[in-house]
């Protein structure tokens, strides 16, 4: 699609990596500041769209274990398990818990259970963008059933 070699290099070498880092950063800061799984997922999704526009396959497809449909299910599962988990300890669904632990060298770290919900959302958004790219962005191979009546 994009013919320029320089743009391709730029996207492959720089934008992909920087974009991924920004996406991860945004996802983690989402608890008390603007950001979160949805925004982070969209940024990573935008990185994949850029790769697609540069004429490459989005990288995540190279690993069969991470095919977008499984990723979608995994993300959804993570989010829903976080939703349901408080029920087992007598809380309400979606209730969030905060633990704080002290790690050597790093210091005090706060872990919030709703972060896992954010990760789930992150995976879902990324998977949806990848599914759109693979199903609508390529010709054929998207729907397994061929048309039953003639192609007009």
């Amino acid at each position: 699609m994009i013919k320029s070699k320089i743009l391709e290099e730029l996207i492959d070498r720089w934008l992909t990596k920087v974009g991924t880092l920004v996406a991860i950063f945004i996802t983690f800061r989402g608890h008390n500041a603007p950001g979160g799984g949805f925004a982070g997922g969209l940024i990573l999704g935008a990185v994949f769209v850029l790769q697609y526009l540069a004429g490459q396959q989005p990288t995540i497809r190279r690993k069969p274990i991470l095919n977008p449909e499984r990723l979608l299910g995994f993300g959804l599962l993570l989010a829903l398990v976080t939703t349901a988990a408080p029920l087992f300890v007598g809380g309400a669904p979606l209730e969030s818990y905060i633990w704080s632990i002290t790690l050597p060298q790093i210091g005090k770290v706060k872990i919030v259970s709703s972060t896992f919900f954010d990760f789930g959302v992150f995976f879902v958004v990324v998977a949806v963008v990848l599914l759109v790219l693979t199903f609508l962005g390529t010709r054929g191979g998207a729907i397994s059933h061929e048309p039953t009546d003639g192609v007009g």
Partner: peptide, 19 residues
């Protein structure tokens, strides 16, 4: 966003069937 994606898929499918 989801609805739009679905509609585009429908349009694409319609296009592969009827041209």
């Amino acid at each position: 966003f989801a609805l739009l994606t679905f509609l585009m898929t429908l349009a694409w499918r319609n296009w592969t069937i009827t041209g």
